[in-house]
Computed example of a mutant assay.
Amino acid sequence: MLARTCRDEVLEAAHELAVRSADGSFTAEEVVRLIIGRGSTFAESTIRTHVVSRMCVDAPAHHAVRYPDLTRHGGGRYRLVEMAQRIGTSVAPLTAGTSNTTRGDEEPLPEVPAGSSSVQRQAETAILDGLADLLGYKVIPARLHLAGGEYVDVDGVSHAPPTLVEAWAHQGPPKGGQKHKILADALKLIHVGRELGGHHQLILCFSDEQAARSFQPEARTWYAAALKAHHVDVLVVDLSAEWRERIRIAQQRQFR
């Protein structure tokens, strides 16, 4: 397993703070306090520099190597670039001549594809909150680095107890290639769990019984049997009627 970098710790803290915040923003001081409070070996100044400069796409190019992770939100607050993109906030590109990679082969954060729904992305946070009530502990979005040097973004992660979660906000039975997306998420959970070692609870979390039905253990489908064989739990979290309606409207807009 690769040694954790300061960037790894900042990203973990940023994801946790973003989930707690009403608008997904946080300050550099909040990141510093959270990381130092967990016994980090990095100096406060190093952590702060990562937040306000090295990892911020809006900052002047004072470093030879920079990472496109954070963007300024105003008033001394920051957001994760991936979350800002999901809700349609404009994000400045890195200054020309600087690096936007981490270790040699890591790619920049992907663009949000056309047709993706910020409503469904926001609903995933509500799903994770509901799952936390069900499990009795929180899971937060995280970028995990694996032994081979690759990285993977997981919707929900807990280290104690070890848990990996992929959430799906869709309402109603999955259509067409959507089943493939869900099974790809399941394969991600299985692979990451094995790469990290130990015993992780693997969870595919839905927000609708109809969406989950063909993946549940009692379903007579080959993929339901495969999920059971690989110890992937299929859980359903109830969203409010308001959330369900917002998601349905977003789905109708996407399929016009």
Rank of each mutant, 00 (worst) to 15 (best):
W243C: 12
V165A: 04
A92C: 08
A22T: 01
G115L: 05
N100D: 03
A64W: 13
P217Y: 09
L109D: 15
V119L: 15
A241R: 12
E30F: 01
E44Q: 14
A229F: 04
E218C: 00
A160I: 02
T101I: 12
T163P: 11
Q216D: 12
A226H: 05
L227W: 06
R246S: 14
A250Q: 14
I47F: 03
A219L: 06
A167W: 10
H191P: 00
P217T: 00
Q254W: 08
T101Q: 02
V232W: 03
L187R: 04
L135R: 02
G37S: 01
D23A: 01
Y67R: 05
E12T: 11
A84L: 03
A226N: 08
I190M: 10
L164S: 05
L70F: 09
G198V: 10
W222N: 05
G97K: 06
R72K: 10
L34K: 02
Y137K: 00
I247V: 15
T125N: 14
A142T: 04
V236D: 07
D233S: 03
T41M: 13
P141V: 06
C56I: 03
I203F: 07
G88I: 06
A18F: 07
R143A: 14
G88A: 10
E106A: 13
A167K: 11
S99E: 03
A184P: 00
E242G: 06
A147S: 14
E44L: 08
H159I: 03
E124W: 12
L128A: 04
L227A: 00
V52I: 14
N100Y: 04
Q178A: 02
Q251A: 10
R194L: 13
K188W: 14
L2W: 13
P174Q: 05
T89H: 06
L134P: 15
T49H: 01
L164D: 07
Q178N: 05
A96M: 07
A225M: 00
E242S: 09
G74P: 03
G177V: 04
L227S: 00
G115A: 01
S99D: 04
V232A: 03
R7T: 07
T125R: 15
T46Y: 05
R244V: 12
D8P: 04
E12A: 11
R253I: 10
V139K: 06
L204Y: 11
D153T: 12
V152R: 12
A14Y: 08
V19R: 10
V91C: 09
A169K: 13
V112K: 12
L135P: 09
R121T: 15
A219G: 15
S99L: 08
G156T: 04
G76C: 06
H145Y: 15
G193M: 14
A92K: 11
V234M: 08
I190G: 05
P108N: 07
L94R: 02
P93W: 12
G198P: 11
F42D: 01
R72Q: 09
Q122L: 15
L2Y: 13
V65E: 01
E29K: 04
V165K: 09
G130F: 12
A211W: 12
T95K: 05
H180L: 10
T27H: 01
H231D: 06
Q171C: 15
S214E: 08
D8E: 13
H63V: 03
